[in-house]
Design a protein around this nucleic acid. Sequence first.
DNA 1: ATGCTGATTAAGTTTAGACATAGAACGAAG
DNA 2: CTTCGTTCTATGTCTAAACTTAATCAGCAT
Lengths: 236, 236
Amino acid sequence: MTDRPATNPSKAHAIVTEVRRRIVEREWRQGDRIPDEVELAVEFGVARATVNKALQLLAEEGLLDRKRRAGTHVTVNPARKATLTIPIVREQIEGAGMAYSHRIIAQKHGPAPADIASRMAEAEGTMMIHLRTVHYGDDKPFQVEDRWINPKAAPGAEHVDFQRINPNEWLVRNFPWLRGDIAFSAENADARDARLLETRQGTALLILQRTTWNDQGAITSVRLAFHPGYSMVASP
Amino acid sequence: MTDRPATNPSKAHAIVTEVRRRIVEREWRQGDRIPDEVELAVEFGVARATVNKALQLLAEEGLLDRKRRAGTHVTVNPARKATLTIPIVREQIEGAGMAYSHRIIAQKHGPAPADIASRMAEAEGTMMIHLRTVHYGDDKPFQVEDRWINPKAAPGAEHVDFQRINPNEWLVRNFPWLRGDIAFSAENADARDARLLETRQGTALLILQRTTWNDQGAITSVRLAFHPGYSMVASP
DNA sequence: ATGCTGATTAAGTTTAGACATAGAACGAAG
DNA sequence: CTTCGTTCTATGTCTAAACTTAATCAGCAT
């Protein structure tokens, strides 16, 4: 059961809550045009800017549609949004009260295969660093990481001792990104996944595939395979 | 490859972009304290409120940490956020250029089993509506939906013809929610999943489990199993 | 050293007012 | 009836100023 953040006592937040209530209790129904900012400002006894802030929050949430001149309407088929927080693996494991450790299974320097290169918008065969890492919580495998790092966008990676600091953490600390692609899927564990995650081949695994970019190009592309049964929670 | 929304020409957005650049190009490094709002307002030639808006956006994004009196710092281990948009299935399928159809496999009124009841914070055995639906795109199974609806929070569900309007759409249109829980996981298809999705038992499936609530309690709890190979994309 | 207290500071929020602009509505011309 | 300007309006954005508040810091007392 998720609880609403924490009661923010601001006037804008009170308006958000009240408008949400009117929508949920169907005082204002889907498609209805709601009073304009000036009217609401009068009703709530606040400045227009405050109403504007509140309604913009609700529009972001997907509950309202706002258009200049046309006014603000209750969204007809709200496609609601959920936010996923993707923390550093170590913090995620430690946050769950487990002891973190990791092992580098393989590390080499070599040409990127076609699929990786295309995902990273680099020429096939571009030299990159390839790493396979397992992250453990209380010595049980938590996540298998298969990562390609582009030295062009992340210089210095060649000389890092990834036994000391895991690749995820080193990159997060040293290469903030401008944009990234993230996708989730499910895959049956292949022989290697199964061995590293200490499970049986064919077990369903949650897979997260992510590529991040900075001004120099793609920094890294990674495939994360979580241990069987892992569930990723999103907050609405 | 994801592109940044659309260039918003506002001053606040220009500041967001510039601050992001300074962080990405490591002019400002992790842990650094950045100039305060007044200084930045002078530097950029705008009002403090405009700087405030920009920095709040970056704080939400996870790139900055802001504390009263302590100032604004570049986040040390940024746990970046990704947003998932969860549209109506029909719109998702039609948006992909396929023809939408659905089939109700089972519909009955009965007592909720323990796990569902607890997820919905209702007493075990509470009478609910149980539905199993398959959603198709171009007559290929896209998603299997296993849903429990709580008539207490969603009155009227007993008399709806779900062959005409699918349960997802009817609920979204009639019962906006206040909060919800969403979780992703991977499961091996059981015999029923496999049959409905026209795949082999054991195939890895992406599972989305969601429960939504309004002021009357839990509206509905649903398990969505996507077709094999489905990938859900998040936007950062 | 340790703990308390009050001053100070930077962010948080709100306000009133102004101007910009998308786009709906309307009317004139074809 | 359609098309093309024009007008008008609700939202978008910004400003300058004020007040609020969390939290740090320094000074004082223990």
